[in-house]
Design a protein around this nucleic acid. Structure first.
Lengths: 220, 220, 220, 220
DNA sequence: CATGAATGAGAATTCATTCAT
DNA sequence: TATGAATGAATTCTCATTCAT
């Protein structure tokens, strides 16, 4: 049967997507990432995602099953991105203190440049990680990362630069916390403290503070 | 006395038409606090608040005008509670290090005991603090608190116990961040790090870590 | 906001209305006239009327029984006003042509100065005059007016200035129609005809047109 | 075949899930026209429109976006109808006086046969034409009509049958006013003048009056 | 005569998902 | 694989009126 059917009147032959499953799937995922990052899980609209991806709404269900499963895919992608970027830092080949400084700086800048990532994580926690719980890939994604930080700590301790017995998980959460909280809670904090927390100087000061804090904590 | 009336279902015999504005207002506020704390702003349902408060839905609009204004009232109440509790710590009369340790411990425990508070703050930040912006009381509530921490830092610096020039706002946000992030993001973190972050030992360890971190940072 | 509670500190002792039935009734009626004139029957709010009249909502029901009955009272008042103003024109003592010219000019200006009157009449017609139907005073109010116009026509016909056999009711409705329609429908007409119908020159032109039309019609 | 299904009440066995967008849209528009014409904008109920159109309420929003946009569509349709009917009068090919007489008669009869049109226009004016203001088609619909009347007046003046310099807009509004007011305000007028304005003889008399008035006015 | 708290029955609009083609 | 029309259950908010004090 000839495509571009007769019901479509003047102007006809709309750019009816060629049958390209891969591309369609990718477009949906990209659109969904934008939507979820901007509005969170509950704020996102399936209709809008379909529109932004220029696909039929039905396709979303075809490829992803449900809004929740789509959200999980987005979330996995987001975690993969940050973990990949971290891997590219090559922390293994840096001196321990430099490695930590690099990691802290990277984390801060990543949060700053990818506010959508913070919102995704926030959304997921609001839902008690019910999506991530069912993820098959997420753990494998993170254990190398934790292991890498543990390695840095061990090296630092061996060299006498870092104190002994620091829990890498505790440290990771701290590095994340000091930036994450500042950025996600900047709206209320700005009011409470009556200060523009996003002014360039303020951002620089916060990064300096975090580095200072983390390295200070590690000092033996 | 006729008990309840037949049109009402289970739970009956409620003191309807109580004609007690103070109590009604209070009941609405209490119910709303519970609902918003549990489900956030967008998850909360006005219907459910009315039900839980055992008032006619219309009353919520009578007393508070809109869901948003009700949320602001809840938020102001929540901030008032924590700030009042802090005031009762009497930090002014403690030695600087003891004051900080007390504040850190208090903050952690408060977050732990009042998860709803964290969710309210989170919700408000998801909405870019649009409610708090219109609040007339919120700033007055916080400036004494910031001033008090600044005073502790000054005393500590004078005694040579704390380093000089520490920004009290930066410190406050840090104390908050280290606990807040751990608790609100525990769902994703638990999966990523494959660890039960809410185990009593884990909680104790986190508090110890935070105290250690903060006091370590302040040390000259 | 619930009033009358102990929190009402300074300024206390609200101007709790002295018991003055007459004044209360009058205040309600005035407030209702404004509200109905501005927003029509269905747009008007009982709450707002009470607020504007600075009386308790219950009083409206006490004095007028219902929103509908209040509307009728307002309507009767509005008709009384215009008919009284007309009576003051003393048309009986003017020459027939001058009388008609005066009546037409008065009608136009009254509509222009009292847009609320037009809206009240419009509202009432939207409801098929169900309020006016029950009015006991409205007919007595109008028969003298019709009689007066009939008299002018008779005088004019006798003097050979006006044509014979003109129906005073038909004429009255025409005088009203030519101004009423122009003013009430000016919003759609402005768009349809792409012209500012409320410009001073346009208003003057319409009045001139109406006078011209009516007197032209009466000419023998 | 199971007829209808038990969940549906009387009237059942409707062709649900008709999957015929054109027809659905048309059904909604027709139902909405009836509802708005009968009850005005604010009196109309979206629920009832959906019911009358035998569509899911959601479809109204799917096709028209909002109650207001639906109202605009209805309004545009109503104007298109009357303007089309006018065009079919072929006034261009009639002698000037005959053309005016035909137009006046048509207008009167159209109002009489389509009271819904009057109510739609009335509603729109109550809302200060806020819908029509945004219409893209309404002006194009009317300018040919105005031009046609202007042409008739020019022809009449050239032949010495009509007076010179008559404003076609003024005349149009007059033709409309004389019928519109009589019909929309017949409820209050009937009471005020104590006369049955809808009696066949009364209707005939009014039409005769209007023709007489308009042609009289045009006479040089 | 006066107060204002309380009520219940709707109002428009939204949303994830499914179905016919 | 692809389309987009169709669904029903909720959601916030409104309003004239009545009741306890």
């Amino acid at each position: 049967m000839p495509v571009g059917d007769s019901r479509r009147g003047a102007g006809g032959s709309l750019p009816r997507r060629a049958r390209n499953p891969e591309a369609t799937r990718r477009r949906i995922l990209r659109a969904a990432t934008g939507e979820f990052a901007r509005l969170g899980l509950s704020g996102a609209r399936v209709d809008r995602i379909a529109e932004r991806a220029r696909v039929n709404k039905r396709m979303i269900y075809h490829y992803f099953g449900s809004k929740d499963e789509l959200f999980l895919a987005v979330l996995e992608g987001a975690y993969a991105n940050i973990r990949n970027a971290e891997r590219r830092l090559d922390l293994e080949h840096l001196a321990p203190e430099e490695a930590i400084r690099t990691l802290v700086t990277f984390t801060w800048n990543y949060y700053l440049d990818n506010p959508g990532f913070l919102r995704l994580v926030n959304s997921e926690n609001l839902h008690k990680a019910r999506h991530l719980k069912r993820s098959k890939v997420i753990k494998d994604m993170h254990s190398p990362f934790v292991e890498m930080v543990a390695d840095i700590l061990r090296r630092g301790a061996r060299h006498g630069i870092f104190r002994k017995g620091v829990d890498p998980v505790q440290l990771n959460m701290t590095i994340a916390a000091l930036g994450y909280y500042y950025l996600t809670n900047r709206y209320t904090s700005s009011i409470i403290f009556d200060r523009d927390l996003m002014a360039p100087a303020a951002l620089d000061a916060r990064l300096a503070f975090i580095i200072d804090n983390v390295l200070g904590y590690l000092r033996p």
